[in-house]
């Protein structure tokens, strides 16, 4: 415990200062008032985007300060964050996850694979990109996208 206390005192505030606020997302159904629950679905990725998403919600980038929070259930979520190309086995669970999310909801495709199949285009287990399975509202390209870019996309939803 003393070690942990010393670490806390030494590290202090780890989060970097917030960049300027981006524009809000278009659409009348995005009036969530600064509280957004994010349900992350990995539809078949190489885990690169997962690491970036974990970094986004980590202490350095701290997406939680803008009101975005990772939630445990699609029913609690406002944003479904899709990473990875949609494989055959995951296409139905992905669809069910998005359907289980109550309106108003936003579907975010993060990473080149989710946006347009990326390096896995034409692969043997690949069913398509995210927009082939569900309606995507916001695409975040990159392989993998930097946490800054993911934060900016989330801030467009939370408007904070």
């Amino acid at each position: 415990m003393r070690g942990l206390l010393r670490l806390m005192r030494a590290a202090g505030r780890v989060a970097e200062p917030a960049p300027p606020r981006p524009e809000g997302l278009e659409g009348a159904n995005v009036a969530l008032g600064g509280s957004v629950g994010v349900r992350h679905v990995d539809a078949g990725s190489c885990n690169g985007c997962e690491i970036e998403v974990a970094a986004t919600f980590g202490p350095v980038y701290d997406a939680e300060r803008y009101g975005a929070k990772l939630v445990a259930s699609a029913r609690h979520a406002d944003v479904v964050l899709i990473t990875g190309v949609v494989t055959r086995n995951m296409s139905e669970p992905l669809r069910r996850t998005v359907e289980a999310t109550p309106n108003p909801r936003v579907v975010l495709a993060v990473g080149d694979c989710a946006c347009s199949c990326g390096v896995f285009a034409g692969g043997i287990g690949v069913a398509g990109a995210a927009h082939d399975a569900v309606d995507v509202d916001l695409a975040v390209p990159g392989c993998p996208p930097e946490p800054d870019v993911i934060v900016e996309a989330l801030r467009r939803v939370t408007r904070r």
Partner: peptide
């Protein structure tokens, strides 16, 4: 409230 078919079970099939 809106009725839906499936309960949330992790999206399993």
């Amino acid at each position: 409230p809106r009725p839906v078919e499936l309960a949330w079970g992790g999206g399993g099939v």
